[in-house]
Design a protein around this nucleic acid. Structure first.
Lengths: 214, 214
DNA sequence: ACAAAAGTGTTTTATATACACCCATGT
DNA sequence: ACATGGGTGTATATAAAACACTTTTGT
């Protein structure tokens, strides 16, 4: 006898993770090439099934660490995907997460079910396996919202010390819109989310002050 | 042989719904008294398991219609609850929804697993079954956010025609804070979300103009 | 000297807040 | 006449947006 009155169907539950970084001056997403059917050879978001002893956040963190070797700071659960036919193998509910990190921290590993893992620029990312195009689009929309609400959301994409110009360029990449330099700097400096350092970045120009998260 | 490489555990997946209405001048939540173990006799949020042929939104709508007889306008998926031990019967992932409706539209029915269904004032709602206290609290927080972002979110709580005073009082109930009458009216009237009617509500005072959603 | 990016304030506009009195009806 | 809630406008404060030139370094 089941412990449940109505013997519910039991879908598999997976956490799929949109892991973004900054590479080659653009946002890139971590994808894995599927080693088995369905969608063999197609790119997909990394993810994996919820295990017995973990909640969804723990599952997402575990999968992410397996894939990247990086223990993510913050992960954001942003939507569920539950169309009955979204996975040809059977019923799979996908809980989608967004995570930001630095490409330099990542040592990509081919994991159990990923033949290959790679960073892909968002522009050239289409025709993913399953409904992952939709999941990715939803993640980017949410990223834009979060960044607008608080640019500090983007800190994990950047090194521990960064210039305001760099933060602004990431902000513009994620929101899609250019912003005024003076207004942006004022906003961020007055937000209390950063602290100025006594260090500077040098280049073929005036040195730029570095800032760190407050 | 499983269609899945790693034969994932298969939790039950349920939609639990925080259904709110306006009754006796307060927000009230629809609860069901549990007819069976665990938590027999305790109040719980209505909800039910995801079926084979439906996605989560459809599941929430179906459960809600079963419970209230009302086909909800908008339902809002606002969080997942996935602690491994949140249900003593076994693994159950809860996807939580928020829905607003009018108490007058509801004819409460005792459903399959609900011995009794009733509206309960939020103030006296505690010690719900499972982690439903937490789910309810999260729903109220989200409601407050949505109402602040756009008071039109609250329209489903009200009849098809309502006075601005009534809308304001609901707004104050949901956000917790009193607002200035003139500022609130200005905001709502200029939002384009309502249209004035040539009808008035009478009482022991000056008649109040009625408005309808735009 | 030139190129390249860093840095810096003020003005304008829009939005949010604070605030008090008269009006129309029922009793 | 009085009690009850309905209805209205302005002034202030805060936040957002627009806008251009000078500074510092490397080459």
């Amino acid at each position: 006898m089941s412990a449940f009155c109505d013997d519910p169907p039991r879908p598999a539950v997976a956490a799929d993770i949109v892991i973004l970084c900054l590479r080659e001056g653009a946002l890139q997403v971590l994808l894995v090439r599927r080693g088995g059917d369905p969608f063999r050879g197609r790119w997909a978001l990394p993810g994996g099934f919820l295990q017995e002893d973990e909640d969804l956040d723990a599952c997402a963190r575990r999968e992410m660490e397996e894939e990247t070797g990086v223990r993510p700071g913050r992960i954001l659960q942003f939507a569920n995907f539950s169309q009955p036919d979204r996975d040809p193998r059977g019923r799979v509910i996908s809980v989608a997460y967004l995570a930001l990190l630095r490409a330099e921290d990542v040592r990509l590993k081919a994991s159990a079910d990923a033949a290959e893992a790679a960073w892909r620029p968002l522009a050239r990312t289409r025709n993913l396996a399953f409904d992952h195009d939709v999941i990715l689009a939803a993640a980017l929309a949410r990223l834009s919202d979060e960044a607008r609400a608080d640019p500090a959301f983007l800190f994990p994409l950047l090194p521990p010390a960064f210039t305001l110009s760099r933060l602004q360029s990431v902000f513009e990449l994620t929101t899609g819109r250019p912003v005024d330099k003076r207004n942006f700097r004022k906003l961020v400096e007055e937000s209390g989310r950063i602290q100025p350092l006594e260090a500077f970045e040098r280049g073929a120009h005036r040195p730029a002050r570095l800032f760190a998260p407050a």
